[in-house]
């Protein structure tokens, strides 16, 4: 957090620097900067961001001799932030009068819907595809699946998105071209009503984002399943007279999914970065848009806020992966 905080401030330019016709009067800029405490020293800005304006003010009232305290005493009563620690991500600098909490609360569910559906899509298509490829090893089906996997991995969503729009939305007219079909309120904060409109809108972006996942999951499933099928316990299971389907589903697949679960953590990260592009291409009002525009706008509080949410998301994703691990493999136990 500190890294992001200081690095974004080290970038040249600030949120209220404009050029040419748009440039603001010096007095206006000063006023705005003061309102967002940008006139404070960087360490005091950080304190106020993390702990809140009132804490910074209280400290300075008690010991006014700390360097930079004069500015703090001057402005803390205007009160922008209650501090991240109390769940307040501050005010947006470039969207007048809006809180970061409000903006993220609006856009994050949409991003989460897109991301979860993409991961679900990747698992639901990748595992069967990899399984089929492994069972039909070295046949045309296997080669076709492998070719598809390489293709899915190498075509970025920046290319895939417009291609999908062109084919399925513009030429065939099956799906809407862009935007998102879900409307708040959401169940549990992020689960939308499963309307036809929602799925029609979701189909293309989810495919664009999920296809790369499908590809890597399919490749891993294939390799891992092939290895598991050669294990002794599969021979034992065959010696018991189990039919092929039971053999694969009950004995082989669960063992082969262990490495697949392992890469779900890193894959979540790639979904997050992929969603910046996908949301942009499909005009989805998600968080990725804010992430990119806020950097260009030097909207400091927005950058920090979005980064924090993504970091939290990755931590949670990795935790879920660990839990799934223990569920799949009884040899792993949490003490």
């Amino acid at each position: 957090m500190l890294t992001v905080f200081s690095m974004m401030r080290a970038l040249p330019g600030g949120p209220f620097d404009f050029e040419g016709d748009k440039s603001l009067a010096k007095a206006v800029t000063d006023n705005l900067e003061r309102r967002h405490h940008l006139d404070w020293s960087e360490s005091w800005q950080f304190v106020s961001y993390v702990l809140g304006d009132d804490v910074a003010g209280a400290v300075c009232e008690t010991i006014p001799s700390i360097p930079g305290c004069d500015k703090v005493l001057d402005g803390y009563k205007a009160g922008v932030s209650r501090g991240v620690i109390r769940g307040d991500l501050g005010m947006a600098m470039r969207q007048r009068g809006r809180t970061i909490n409000g903006i993220i609360g609006e856009s994050f569910p949409v991003s989460l819907q897109l991301g979860l559906m993409a991961i679900g899509f990747g698992l639901l298509t990748g595992i069967p595809l990899g399984t089929i490829a492994a069972l039909k090893q070295n046949t045309t089906i296997d080669y076709a699946a492998s070719f598809f996997a390489v293709l899915g991995l190498s075509v970025p969503s920046l290319v895939l998105g417009p291609v999908l729009i062109w084919i399925f939305a513009l030429k065939l007219g099956w799906f809407p071209v862009s935007t998102w079909g879900a409307q708040p309120p959401f169940f549990l904060g992020f689960i939308p009503a499963p309307t036809k409109d929602f799925f029609m809108h979701a189909a293309l972006p989810v495919t664009a984002l999920g296809l790369a996942l499908t590809a890597s999951i399919a490749r891993l499933t294939r390799a891992s399943l092939l290895q598991v099928i050669g294990e002794d316990y599969i021979r034992t299971a065959r010696a018991k007279g189990l039919p092929q389907s039971t053999l694969i589903v009950r004995h082989a697949l669960r063992n082969s999914l262990i490495p697949v679960v392992t890469i779900l953590g890193p894959l979540t990260a790639s979904v997050v970065t992929g969603s910046f592009v996908t949301e942009f291409v499909f005009g989805i009002p998600g968080m990725g848009k804010h992430f990119i525009t806020s950097i260009n706008n030097r909207d400091y509080s927005m950058i920090s806020g979005v980064t924090l949410v993504y970091a939290l998301l990755l931590v949670i994703a990795n935790m879920i992966v660990d839990i799934m691990y223990a569920w799949l493999d009884p040899r792993i136990k949490f003490e």
């Binding site: 316990y233 299971a237 063992n255 009884p330």
Partner: peptide, 9 residues
């Protein structure tokens, strides 16, 4: 050691 499936009871 290897002839029993590790993930099934």
């Amino acid at each position: 050691m290897t002839s029993l499936n590790p993930v099934l009871t």
